[in-house]
Design a protein around this nucleic acid. Sequence first.
DNA 1: ATGGTGGTGGCACCA
Length: 260
Amino acid sequence: MKIATWNINGVRARIGNLIAWLKESDPDIVCLQEIKSANEQFPRLEIEALGYHVETNGQKGFNGVAILSKLKFDEVHRGLPGDDADEHARFIEGVFSTPRGALRVVSLYLPNGNPIGTEKFSYKLGWMARLERWATERLALEEPLVMGGDYNVIPENGDARNPEVWVNDALFQPESRQALRRLVNLGFTDATRASTDAKDVFTFWDYQAGAWQKNNGIRIDFQMLSPEAANLLTSASVEKHVRAWEKPSDHVPVAIELAA
DNA sequence: ATGGTGGTGGCACCA
């Protein structure tokens, strides 16, 4: 079973790329972030025509996440619990039935948090604390759980081509990295990190200043696997070539293969 | 420096 995550930076602007990529990559389940679309505006018909079920947690203009799946959804849950005042659409969970039993998949879009020293950064850290609480509860189920998403955190210096330029960025702050480490230390496996020792494995290249041409990237999109999911992991890949397509997203898909 | 989106008369916000 192939599960991919991709921050698509506007699903309506990117529908051509998305359809081409779905045909080429043929994932079973896709976690999308930054759809920048209300649920009613999501281009579901073209995706459903390829055999996917579509569930969205969208909002007008910004943010928004979705899960596409060839398996039908047994359950869908929208929103990260823990703050009733949080209106950002950044989290959706789907539950599926497989021959091995239940499979849970989350698509999450963690807050960027810039600039540091503002309420945006405290919102990011608060969101990460809520995610840790949620994940702790889900781990108790002892089920395969895959949390794909744009985590907006650079875990280690080696996850940036030029770490020194990120030192004042929310993605690189010690508090952000510590909160991500807390998640890993609960028992989650960063599938890409577990599958390669390669340097310069990036998932995001800024549109500006020729970042892609210079390979000035960062690795901020992850698939975090519960122990039960990690035990099924057979491979992980970053579909970097998609960044060279016409009108690309600034992020590329990150995929895993789980034993059926 | 680049790009998507939304609500406009040109521009603001988000990344």
